[in-house]
Write a protein that binds this DNA or RNA. Structure first.
Length: 482
RNA sequence: GGGCUCGUAGCUCAGCGGUGAGAGCAAGGGACUCAUAAUCCCUGGGUCGCAGGUUCGAAUCCUGCCGGGCCUACCA
C-alpha cells in the first residue's frame, strides 16, 4: 500500500496545436494519478512534448519560422492544455531540453555494447511517417498517408539488436510482469512478438534530419532515431543521466504505468522494455492503451485542421464537463466519438440532472429539516464495483459504479417522501434518512475526486458545513434554443 | 497481402454457447413536488452487418463476404 506510483502520458510531437485526442490521454493519466493518490500512494505524473521529430522541422520551414521558435510556440500550447483540463503534472519534459539530451546520450552509452551495430540500409523514406515505405504502397508516387513523395535513402545506420530480446519480452508480457490492458491489446502484442522481432534502426543520417535531433555519442554524422529519443523521456524527466536520485520513481517498488494511444503500443510494449533490459534498468509495469477519438464521426486530422480545440471546449462547458465526458462517454479502450451535441446531452443527464440535482435536493432537505453537521468517515467505503473497475483501468466503469448510487438515493428519497414529514412539522423523523443519504453522497463525492476534482471538493465542503445550507446549482443545466 | 480488432434498440455500449436479447441516454404515458422544467414508476422499440456451417441449442464457436479501425509486410 505504501507503494509509489509513476504515471506517464506519451509525448505528442508538436507540429500542430493539441486536439481532443491528446486531451483524452492527459485526462486518463491524470485520473489514474489522482486515484492512486487518493489511495494514499506517493504518485508522480509526467507528460511533455516530443520536439526532435523531423516533422517539426518541416512544419516550421513551411511556415517560414525557425524550428526552435516553432516548437517553443506549440510546446506552450501543450503545456497550457494541462491547467485547462485541471491536470497538474509533476514534470513536463521537452525533448529539446539539455537535461533530456544528456539523458539520451547516457542511455545510449548504457546500452549493452553488443546490442548496437552498424548496417547499411537502402529504401524509400517518407518524412511524414518517419519511416521507410515500399514502392508498391505508393499512390502516384506519393505516400498514401501523407500525400508526399518519399525520398530515396541509401545510408548506414546504427541498429539495435531487438531480436535478442524476443523471448525476454514475450515472457514479461505473458507473465503479466508487464501488463498490457486491455486484454485484446495484449493478445495483439503477443502475436506481434511471436511472429519474430527484427532488429531496428535506431539512428538517422544527421544531414537528412536537417541537423535537428540528438547526435549519436561519438558519431555526430548520425542522430538518434526520434522514437528512441522520445521513449527516454520517461526516465529523463526523473533525472536519469543528470541526477543521482533519479530512480526514486523508476525501481521495482514503484508501479510504473504508461498511458498511450493504440497506434504506439509497439514502441512501449516491445521496443522500450527491450531497450531498458539492454540498459540494465527496470521495465514498466503497465501499458494502458486507449483508442482514438473521432469528431462528429469524422477522423481527426492534424493536417486537415478540422479539430475541436479542447481549450475552447473547456471554455464553453467547463473543465469538469469535458473531463467527465472524456472519461465516461468515451470507452476506456475503444474508439469513441467526441461531439459537442453528445457532450451537452451527457452533461445535462449525468451532471446537471444526476449529480448536481441530487446535491441540490439533499442540501435543501437538510436545511429545511434543520439537519446540521454531517460527520463522515475520513475515507468512506467505495461503491461496489468501483475499485474493480479501476483495477481494469475502466474509467467509465468506475464512474458507472458511482452513478448507480445516485439513482439509488433518488429512489430512496422518492419512496421516503421526507417532504411529507416536513409539512407535518416533524423534521426530526427524517434525520435518520438524511444521515444515510449524506453518507452515500459523501462516498460518491470522495471517490469522484479522480474524475471531477473540483465538484468532488465542492460537495465535500458543503457536507462539512454547519449547518448545511441550500447550494447553488453545481452544474447548471444547459438550455439551448433550437 | 498478413495479424489483430469493431459492426447488437434512434444514440453510446454490455452480453461472448443454453430460461422469451440487456443498460444508460433519447422517445411516449403516468406519479410526485424536497430539487437545476428535476426526480420516481411504466411502456414502446432490435432480421444481434450479410451468407453459409458446427451444435439438441448461436448474438455468442467456425468459414466466406461487406463495411470501419490500428498495426505490419522484399517476392510467394
Amino acid at each position: 500500500m505504501t507503494r509509489k506510483c509513476y504515471v506517464t502520458t506519451t509525448i505528442p510531437y508538436v507540429n500542430a496545436k493539441p486536439h481532443v485526442g491528446f486531451a483524452l490521454e492527459l485526462v486518463q493519466a491524470d485520473a489514474l494519478a489522482r486515484y492512486h493518490r487518493l489511495l494514499g500512494r506517493d504518485v508522480r505524473l509526467q507528460t511533455g512534448t516530443d520536439e526532435n521529430a523531423l516533422k517539426n522541422v518541416l512544419a516550421a520551414s513551411e511556415r517560414g519560422v525557425a524550428t526552435q521558435h516553432f516548437v517553443d510556440d506549440n510546446a506552450r500550447a501543450f503545456r497550457d492544455l494541462c491547467p485547462a483540463l485541471g491536470v497538474a503534472p509533476d514534470e513536463f519534459v521537452r525533448t529539446t531540453e539539455p537535461r533530456h539530451r544528456r539523458a539520451v546520450e547516457r542511455f545510449w552509452q548504457r546500452l549493452r555494447a553488443d546490442d548496437i551495430y552498424r548496417k547499411k540500409y537502402t529504401g524509400l523514406y517518407c518524412v511524414g511517417c518517419e519511416d521507410f515505405v515500399l514502392e508498391r504502397d505508393l499512390v502516384d508516387g506519393c505516400c498514401v498517408d501523407h500525400g508526399k513523395p518519399p525520398v530515396r535513402v541509401d545510408e548506414e545506420n546504427y541498429f539495435f539488436r531487438l531480436s535478442t530480446y524476443q523471448s525476454q519480452v514475450e515472457d514479461l508480457i505473458r507473465s503479466d510482469r508487464l501488463r498490457i490492458v486491455p486484454q485484446t491489446r495484449r493478445n495483439e502484442v503477443l502475436a506481434f512478438v511471436r511472429q519474430g522481432l527484427q532488429d531496428i534502426s535506431v539512428s538517422r543520417l544527421a544531414a537528412r534530419a536537417g541537423g535537428w535531433g540528438i547526435p549519436v555519442p561519438g558519431d555526430p554524422s548520425q542522430v538518434i532515431y526520434v522514437w528512441i529519443d522520445a521513449l527516454i523521456n520517461y526516465v529523463s524527466g526523473l533525472g536519469f543521466g543528470t541526477s543521482d536520485g533519479w530512480d526514486e520513481y523508476w525501481n521495482d517498488d514503484t508501479l510504473k504505468i504508461h498511458v498511450m494511444g493504440k497506434n504506439v503500443w509497439k514502441f512501449h510494449a516491445v521496443y522500450w522494455p527491450a531497450l531498458l533490459l539492454s540498459a540494465g534498468l527496470p521495465v514498466p509495469d503497465v501499458v494502458a492503451v486507449h483508442g482514438f477519438l473521432t469528431q462528429n464521426g469524422q477522423k481527426i486530422s492534424k493536417t486537415l485542421g478540422n479539430t475541436i480545440d479542447p481549450v475552447d471546449c473547456v471554455r464553453e462547458f467547463g473543465l469538469e464537463a469535458v473531463r467527465y465526458y472524456l472519461l465516461r462517454a468515451i470507452p476506456s479502450f475503444d474508439d469513441g466519438d467526441f461531439s459537442t451535441e453528445r457532450l451537452k446531452g451527457v452533461y445535462n443527464a449525468d451532471l446537471a440532472n444526476g449529480l448536481g440535482n441530487l446535491v441540490s435536493r439533499l442540501t435543501t432537505l437538510c436545511s429545511r429539516a434543520g439537519f446540521c453537521c454531517y460527520v463522515g468517515a475520513a475515507s468512506p467505503a467505495a461503491p461496489e464495483g468501483y475499485h474493480e473497475a479501476w483495477s481494469r483501468y475502466e474509467y467509465d466503469g468506475a464512474l458507472a459504479a458511482l452513478w448507480k448510487l445516485i439513482t439509488v438515493v433518488n429512489q430512496e428519497i422518492d419512496r421516503a417522501a421526507p417532504w411529507a414529514a416536513l409539512k407535518a412539522k416533524d423534521p426530526g423523523s427524517v434525520h435518520g434518512h438524511l444521515e444515510r443519504w449524506l453518507g452515500v453522497l459523501h462516498s460518491i463525492a470522495y471517490w469522484l475526486a479522480p474524475f471531477v476534482p473540483r465538484a468532488s471538493q465542492t460537495i465535500l465542503e458543503m457536507l462539512a458545513r454547519d449547518p448545511i445550507v441550500p447550494s447553488a446549482p453545481l452544474f447548471p443545466r444547459l438550455v439551448y434554443l433550437q
